[in-house]
């Protein structure tokens, strides 16, 4: 990967990676740090990175950084979840997108990541497996469970519009 190709990667994928991480971490500064760390790693290893696979490499690195970050800040993450829950209970959700975001927040990191990699980035099961380190059947099962949970949350009486 050349310098030009790397900078093109920044232009094309920085927003996507940022969205992927921010939706998982729900903290802008942390998400920014993770994204910067991922790009930094890609820059350092640019000679080994094939430009064709730069996007999946970037998501893989960002996903691993995110998991590390979550493990390091588990307590803070739990507090965030609590705050999110209390806030969610207080508010009347009136639109499907908001409800879906809440439902997404209820999923585990792995399930959430799978759903986002599938829906936002359009990866197939095999590619998602490469990024997350799971095999294809695991991706399929986890993803379907995640869908069931999302559906269960959406059809709850208090969330039905």
């Amino acid at each position: 990967m050349t310098e030009r190709e790397y900078n093109e990667c920044v232009n094309h994928y920085a927003d996507n990676v940022y969205r992927f991480i921010l939706k998982n971490l729900r903290n802008e500064e942390d998400a920014r740090d993770v994204v910067q760390g991922a790009f930094e790693k890609m820059w350092v290893n640019r000679l080994q990175v094939d430009n064709e696979k730069s996007k999946s490499y970037l998501f893989t690195v960002a996903y691993n950084h995110m998991i590390d970050h979550i493990r390091k800040n588990k307590r803070i993450s739990l507090k965030d979840d609590f705050a999110e829950d209390s806030r969610g209970a207080a508010q009347q959700h009136s639109n499907a997108k908001r409800i879906l975001d809440e439902a997404l927040a209820k999923l585990s990191e792995t399930q959430r990541s799978l759903v986002m990699l599938k829906d936002y980035e359009g990866y197939n099961y095999a590619e998602i497996g490469e990024i997350t380190g799971l095999n294809e059947s695991q991706v399929k099962v986890y993803l379907h469970r995640a869908r069931l949970q999302l559906r269960a949350y959406i059809v709850r009486p208090e969330n039905v519009i």
Partner: peptide
């Protein structure tokens, strides 16, 4: 309804810090 909308964009504002 359980499918996320890919048009839901988020912009990474500080791209200059990523350029090398």
């Amino acid at each position: 309804q359980t499918k996320l909308d890919p048009k839901d964009k988020m912009v990474f504002a500080d791209k200059k810090s990523l350029y090398r």
